[in-house]
Nucleic acid binder design. Structure first.
Length: 415
DNA sequence: CCTCCACCGGAACGTGAGGAGT
DNA sequence: ACTCCTCACGTTCCGGTGGAGG
């Protein structure tokens, strides 16, 4: 019988019990260390069960601090309690990164509120005020309380007036536009300063209640991971050190719980690929490397050419054995790189800003320090994972960089 | 203690691309 | 087709800055 490509992998006993338990979309039964945040939401949303309008809310916190999970968790209980008590309560969650215009958000809300009898709102074509009127009419017809969750709301607000308009419309529903129904808006954002981008009128309506989610620390992340691991991974598979290490590594990344889960999941996958029955810290290290590679590759690929040239200049100096490179040294190399690329060099002022940009992107570190007599300058070092070939990534995404890198090796061979 | 280097980084301005309105 | 507006990217100008070395 002919062998099949998939036979080998299928015969390996999986180390997972239920892989989904380690995914981002999984809704766990309890959320460790988010008690305060949960009760802030519950204390406000309980008004819905009493037949009143809850206040609008804003939730802030770094990625992976549990904002979305807490909101889903609370809304799920709110809806089921509402059903038990005979109140009509409905939560509509929309991710503004995917649904990113006023029209599409309103259409999405309208369609989720639709009965069989209602007309579907098309993807495009209707005037925005007609869509809004349908949303309003459907809320009123259903009655009760409608909780609108706008996840990653900063994406919408950053686009300018669009977000302002939408929030103004939604928050105006409770001021006389609805009869016998209420609407409550919960905005979720990574950016504490995002309300400053809003129209002041919208600001005051939207944020009577702000909840800030602090990042998890390492031991809290362990508490997040353990129940998920128990559910998702077979017993006796994990070394004792694995979960603490995943937690510690993720705690360094701003306490990102998603990162911790990714690390754990990929570690187990790595162990499976290596066909071993036990996951150890070496697999976590491999997972960490893979995540870093996956994260940094697109960042470097998408850098504009000038920024790639600056990064190239830093890397070249570092490959020559230098550390704590100064802006002047980088600029010198950069001018040569520009010549090889056939580009006109930017001013040193601009390059200084580009260096800062690379610093903020986490590709290099640039600390401004004084060198005494030798003036103020930055001390620049790359912070790429050890085995990461940034030159290769830049060359494959930008043909001119081949010239630049090639010229450097020709020069080196001549010396 | 003062000087002075070599750059920092804010501010104002110029330019061209792209979108909205008419 | 046209104006107007916004935005990102760059330049020019310039006052600041911290500490090694006189």
């Amino acid at each position: 019988m002919a062998s099949n490509l998939f036979d080998g992998l299928l015969s390996v006993r999986s180390l997972f019990r239920d892989r989904r338990a380690l995914g981002h979309a999984f809704n766990p039964d309890n959320l460790p260390h988010r008690g305060e945040e949960i009760s802030s939401l519950v204390n406000n949303l309980v008004e819905a069960l009493r037949g009143h309008a809850p206040s609008n809310m804003n939730l802030y916190g770094r990625p992976g601090s549990g904002k979305t999970a807490v909101t889903r968790f609370v809304c799920r209980d709110l809806e089921s309690k509402g059903a038990a008590e005979g109140c009509n309560i409905r939560a509509v969650e929309i991710n503004c990164r995917n649904v990113d215009t006023k029209y599409r958000v309103l259409a999405e809300i309208g369609n989720r509120l639709a009965d069989e009898a209602d007309e579907m709102i098309p993807f495009t074509g209707w005037p925005a005020d007609k869509v809004f009127e349908h949303v309003r009419a459907r809320m009123q017809a259903r009655g009760g309380v409608h909780v609108i969750v706008l996840d990653e709301i900063d994406y919408l607000v950053r686009k300018g007036k669009e977000g302002d308009d939408l929030l103004y419309s939604l928050t105006s529903l409770n001021i006389g536009l609805l009869d016998g129904a209420f609407c409550c808006v919960i905005g979720i954002s990574n950016d504490l300063a995002f309300t400053e981008m809003l129209d002041p009128r919208v600001q005051s309506r939207l944020s009577p209640i702000d909840v800030v989610f602090p990042p998890y620390n390492a031991s809290q992340l362990e508490d997040v991971l353990r129940p998920r691991a128990a559910r998702g991974i077979k017993e006796g598979v994990l070394d004792e050190a694995v979960i603490p290490l995943c937690a510690a590594l993720a705690a360094k990344e701003d306490g990102d719980a998603r990162r911790a889960l990714d690390l754990l999941r990929i570690s187990v996958q790595r162990a499976e690929q290596n066909e071993v029955q036990r996951v150890g810290i070496s697999h976590v290290r491999q997972a960490q490397n893979q995540l870093e590679f996956d994260q940094i590759t697109p960042t470097i690929q998408n850098l504009p050419l000038q920024q790639k040239l600056v990064l190239f200049s830093v890397i070249v100096n570092e490959n020559n054995g230098l550390t704590n490179i100064s802006t002047g040294e980088v600029y010198g190399t950069y001018e040569m790189a520009c010549e090889n690329a056939g580009e006109k060099p930017l001013t040193s002022r601009r390059v200084s800003s580009l260096i800062r940009g690379l610093d903020m992107a986490g590709i290099i570190t640039a600390k401004t320090t004084s060198r005494g007599r030798h003036g103020m300058s930055k001390r620049i070092n790359t912070c790429l994972p050890p085995a990461f070939d940034a030159l290769e990534v830049m060359c494959s995404s930008e043909p001119v960089m081949n010239e630049v890198v090639g010229a450097r090796y020709r020069l080196q061979n001549r010396l």
